[in-house]
Design a protein around this nucleic acid. Structure first.
Lengths: 188, 188
DNA sequence: TTACGAACTTATCATTTGTCAAGTTGATTC
DNA sequence: GAATCAACTTGACAAATGATAAGTTCGTAA
């Protein structure tokens, strides 16, 4: 996990890493488990060391997937964590998972203790912003088939580890449409 | 501008603000001017104190707007600024504008000098991430008319200060479609 | 094994949106 | 004021996608 962080954020000195590490707690969850429920405030940063999860939103009774995460990965529901408001997203384990969890309030404390940890936070936020923008551009310039092929090329792990119906909602189409697009591609 | 920053990032002590301020340069640009061209690396953070700009991408010879910004606002092309790679986005002034510019390399230096400035960077990145995600969710759950109404409600300044053809590409539809949607709404 | 249910696919038809072409409006320039 | 140009609108038709319903496949539990 330290290597994963340093890969994104640059060197994290021993003393800062030790400080950070002290506040992490080991947690496990099994496939199908919901680690964050709708309407509950998100108070945790998850450091996923094993497994895969997805974030979902509820739209007219239909679950739509907004994010897929595969270990190693750090995630939270930021707009809820920052404001304390209930989360409109749930987080569901799609495989058996292992996490190191960190309380949001403890993270705020750690930010004040270490410019290196503050920097990790900045670099993580920057990377998430870039990824989020990349996903939105996908909608601006690509049709449904091209979006599927974009994911196939840039994020193949998503197609390997998650269900097609969830990939469909992530791509902004119905599962039926995704099925048809996949077939149309075979005919070429 | 300091107030704008503190509103997002919390208190910025006098000494840190002074340090920051020393590296800002006043720049003006007129309506229609391109302050960042396609394929040039982005080396600047703009602090727009007056005016309005938009970011555009080129897609098969057609300009598509990815962002609208109205003063006061801080922006850059992050994925280019971080890597030094040429920007696939251009930035165009839609009104006469005034900026305080900051060189990216100087910002990196400032981050190392001050945990408060580092924090400003983190908070800005967090806010941009949240906004970017909010925009993507718009595509996941809303059809074209609903997206228009979402912008009308949440970002009315966009409809007031930018052209409809640019709003259309920002919403992921053709100008013709947006025109029809606006008409269909009048009939209700 | 059988039965069941969920994921995925296929088919049909309706709706939305894009494409292309033409018309209108309004601001700017000469 | 006439000419011009870009923004915006409108119309007709084509293409993409959604909605509904039904069929298939496959893993799991009785």
């Amino acid at each position: 996990m330290r290597k994963y962080i340093e890969n994104i954020a640059g060197i994290l000195p021993d003393v800062d890493w030790k400080l950070y590490q002290q506040h992490l707690k080991v947690v496990k969850a099994i496939k199908g488990e919901t680690i964050l429920h709708f309407d509950k405030p998100c108070k945790t940063i998850w450091h996923m060391t094993k497994g895969a999860v997805r974030k979902v939103e509820m739209d007219n009774g239909i679950n739509k997937t907004t994010h897929f995460y595969v270990a190693p990965k750090i995630f939270t529901v930021l707009h809820s964590a920052l404001t304390g408001e209930p989360s409109d997203l749930a987080i569901i384990c799609e495989e058996n998972c292992e996490f190191l969890t960190l309380d949001i309030e403890q993270l705020e404390y750690l930010y004040r203790q270490s410019i290196y940890i503050e920097r990790v936070g900045r670099r993580m936020a920057e990377e998430e912003f870039i990824e989020e923008f990349s996903m939105r551009r996908m909608f601006l310039k690509l049709d449904a088939l091209q979006r599927y092929e974009f994911i196939e090329k840039k994020h193949p792990e998503i197609l390997m580890r998650f269900q097609l119906k969830d990939v469909a909602t992530f791509l902004g189409v119905t599962p039926e449409t995704l099925s048809r697009l996949r077939k149309s591609r075979l005919l070429k």
